[in-house]
Design a protein around this nucleic acid. Structure first.
Length: 376
RNA sequence: GGGGAGAUACCAAAGUGGCCAACUGGGGCAGACUGUAAAUCUGCUGUCGCACGACUUCGGAGGUUCGAAUCCUCCUCUCCCCA
């Protein structure tokens, strides 16, 4: 993997860059649609490329391991081939499932023991195993196994968890260094900073993570319920330590405003289920604000879904029609809303990049932040 | 023509003397959702009030009772079966 920074914003820590993987070049800052189980829910690959314009998407180690399973993925020749996606893929390690499936897992020094949410069967995820699985999946960017700590989280637990995440990182890193790709393209490995909302723990973790000399670094354990100001503060702490010449990935973030604020703090990569999940649930993000398409007020509003939108559905369907589809539980409603939200997210990071290159990012960001959170 | 069943809130449907402003579903309205156990979940849904609460409701009219959606009388309407 290669990363180069092209421009930096004079008034913030924002920067634009190019990230090259074996599956293409990714302009940064970038938002990566989440495709947990080998599919970005409701969006087929053609639209993901042609309408959304996504150069990279996510997959999930835990979910793909359970279904379709390693045997199928191996026979398929990896996830790219299996899902017919020739652009980049980043896989999460299952660290988020350590958090979200907390009731179904047990943390041990050697890894995380899961009980499948599908059939209750028991599985052991060690940091090494998670690398092996991601080798089979063939993701361009593999993630270290970590514990995504919940919020609130007391300092004692956060510290203990941090030590576990670092220990796991050592084991995963070692396995990464001692193995190679299986599908003929390069794979890299990102470690993850933890430390909850404690600046000293965050700094300690950032130093530890930076010490690995990975090609990119991730910030995890945020946007789990803490106030946005805490999240920004932690990102600022961490980014002061993580190498500036390597991409920084803020995991699981976030709202359009979160993205712009984090870009200003020097973050290059994002992923979040929000555009797809909230889209399925009737929420639309636009450059003018947020719409809840279930609201009665759109019932007979025949104006386009989003006049300044960037996918075909934005201008070809009316708000009234989309509201009807969503209220009626029609699949097409979820598809249109997801497509719209993803193309909006990708437009947002593209525009941020343009503004960085024009040297106007900070003023543009300030203007956008208030507009994006408006309830229409 | 004969026999039977039933009328409850927007719809469906419980409730058959006080714990009923009335179970539950649906519908409606609103909210939540951040490395996806989510095409999911939560709240409200007679009127007024922020709330405590007050007021008016269970086809209509009258009656019994301390007290009625629930019991009695009459009326109106609906459905089913047999001719």
């Amino acid at each position: 993997m290669e990363f180069s920074i092209l421009h930096t914003d004079p008034a913030s820590s924002a920067r634009s860059g190019l990230l090259k993987t074996g599956h293409g070049t990714i302009p940064t800052p970038i938002f990566m649609p989440v495709g947990t189980a080998g599919s970005v829910k409701g969006i087929h690959q053609r639209d993901l490329k042609d309408e959304v314009g996504a150069p990279i998407i996510l997959g999930n180690t835990y979910h793909l391991y359970l279904r379709p399973g390693m045997d199928v993925l191996q026979k398929a020749g990896g996830l790219h081939s299996f899902m017919n996606w020739d652009r980049s893929i980043l896989t999460d390690s299952g660290g988020y499932q350590v958090f979200s499936l907390a009731a179904n897992r047990k943390l041990l020094p050697e890894g995380a023991r899961f009980q499948s949410h599908i059939d209750g069967s028991r599985h052991m995820f060690t940091p090494e195993r998670v690398v092996d699985i991601q080798r089979i999946i063939g993701s361009d960017i593999m993630m270290a196994l970590d514990e995504c700590t919940p919020w609130p989280c007391d300092a004692a637990y956060a510290k203990k968890s941090l030590d576990l995440t670092h220990r796991w990182l050592d084991l995963g890193w070692e396995r990464y260094r001692n193995t190679g790709p299986l599908h003929g393209h390069d794979q890299t490995f990102f470690p993850i900073v933890q430390g909850s909302v404690y600046p000293d723990l965050r700094r300690r973790s950032a130093e530890y993570i930076a010490g690995k000399g990975a090609e990119g670094n991730a910030i995890g354990g945020l946007s789990v319920g803490e106030p946005a100001e805490d999240m920004y503060a932690m990102v600022a702490e961490v980014n002061a330590i993580l190498p500036a010449d390597k991409p920084r990935y803020l995991m699981g973030v976030g709202t359009p405003v979160n993205l712009l604020e984090a870009i200003a703090l020097g973050v290059d990569m994002f992923d979040c289920v929000m555009p797809t999940r909230n889209g399925r649930n009737g929420m639309l993000f636009t450059a003018r604000g947020i719409l809840n398409m279930k609201n009665r007020k759109w019932m007979d509003d025949f104006s386009p879904v989003d006049e300044d939108g960037h996918c075909f559905a934005d201008t070809q369907y009316s708000k009234a029609y989309l509201r009807h589809l969503i209220v009626s539980g029609e699949m097409l409603g979820a598809q249109i809303a997801s497509l719209h939200n993803l193309s909006f997210y990708l437009w947002l990071v593209r525009q941020a990049r343009n503004e960085i290159e024009n040297g106007s990012f900070s003023t543009w960001k300030e203007k956008m932040v208030s507009v994006l959170a408006t309830r229409l």
